[in-house]
């Protein structure tokens, strides 16, 4: 009985976290299309519901009622598993995101490593989908995404080391609290820029959307998918984008803390500040999609390995030397 009540409590907490995440994923798709449209002086989706707010729901309904086609020469188990993996990995990462000092599902010691591990597993959904489709375009897309995501993960890892040097803990709440006096975006601004661009590459967003480059690869790894399975890829992708935004907000923009530590601002709950910061980063993501042309593949690789990796490594040395010389290293 005791076990059961604990299980029910946890399930309640998980639902309370995941349902808002899924709803906000649907809303964020709408926001993405709206921002994209406004940059290009169009209206965007504005018909279904007020301001077109219900557009994503209409789309979801359409996907649900479409037939799921499984190619006869595909590897069926892996083909079906791929969107499930993408979606699951995008959702389990939210377990460690702190919405305030106490509002966190799992306050684990190695929170940032967990986030990094889950985001680095995200590539499997794409590789599995691309390979199992047994078709040329998805396979090319899968290979592209494997190379791309592995490359940019390296620089994200080094950037995380930069932040951790200033914090002295792998716990996400500690990382947020360490930014009480100054957000890390100020001293580590170059790292923030590199993190943002690497996050674009990690989530296959334009200008780095080569795995699904529609001009060359039809739709890349998702070419053979249809109906709800395609929608799951889509949801997973946007949940991953939200997650990267949350990661950026926690690492550089002070997570759930209010921008100024003055009375009326501190009354606002931490969750709202975090959501506002995630939204800010997401609008930047959407703007980048609207204004930047797609990279060529060799340029993408060059940017990752020859520019970002050396830069962030040098910055690690600089940060460490600065902290050591001025005796600012965090010691517990």
């Amino acid at each position: 009985m005791e076990y059961l009540s604990i299980v029910f409590q946890e399930v309640y907490k998980i639902l309370f976290l995941l349902v808002p995440v899924l709803v906000s994923v649907a809303m964020i798709v709408w926001l993405d299309r709206r921002v994209w449209a406004f940059v290009q002086k169009r209206q965007g989706p504005n018909v279904v519901g007020p301001f077109g707010l219900l557009q994503s729901l209409a789309d979801a309904l359409k996907y649900i009622f479409k037939e799921i086609i499984i190619p006869s020469s595909s590897n069926k188990v892996i083909f079906i598993l791929a969107p499930i993996v993408t979606m699951t990995l995008a959702l389990i990462a939210w377990a460690v995101i702190p919405f305030s000092a106490t509002q966190v599902l799992a306050d684990i010691n190695v929170g940032i490593l967990y986030l990094f591990a889950v985001s680095s597993l995200g590539v499997y959904g794409i590789i599995m989908g691309g390979w199992a489709s047994n078709s040329k375009y998805p396979f090319l897309g899968a290979i592209r995404s494997a190379a791309q995501m592995v490359s940019y993960e390296v620089s994200i890892g080094v950037i995380i080391i930069n932040v951790l040097l200033c914090v002295g803990s792998l716990n996400l709440n500690d990382i947020v609290i360490a930014q009480q006096n100054m957000w890390f975006v100020i001293p580590l601004f170059p790292m923030f820029v590199i993190f943002f661009i690497s996050a674009l590459a990690e989530t296959n967003r334009p200008p780095f959307d080569l795995p699904e480059a529609e001009a060359e690869l039809v739709a890349g790894y998702q070419t053979e998918y249809s109906g709800m399975m395609y929608a799951m890829f889509w949801l997973g992708e946007y949940a991953n984008i939200l997650l990267m935004c949350a990661m950026g907000a926690i690492l550089f923009l002070g997570g759930w803390m209010s921008p100024i530590d003055v009375y009326p601002f501190t009354l606002v709950p931490g969750a709202i500040w975090l959501i506002l910061k995630i939204l800010l980063l997401f609008i930047l993501f959407a703007l980048v999609k609207a204004i930047v042309p797609r990279y060529r593949y060799d340029q993408l690789m060059r940017l990752g390995w020859k520019v970002f990796l050396p830069l962030s490594l040098i910055w690690v040395v600089l940060t460490a030397s600065y902290l050591f010389y001025f005796n600012l290293l965090p010691v517990n």
Binding site: L113, M149, G157
Partner: peptide
């Protein structure tokens, strides 16, 4: 050993096995 577990995930699953898959598929 949560640190070892996470590093195992990041290094082996996130990087080494991806390259394995990459090579095997090619």
């Amino acid at each position: 050993a949560e640190f070892l577990g996470m590093i195992m995930l990041i290094v082996y699953v996130g990087a080494v096995a991806v390259l394995f898959l990459f090579v095997v598929m090619m």
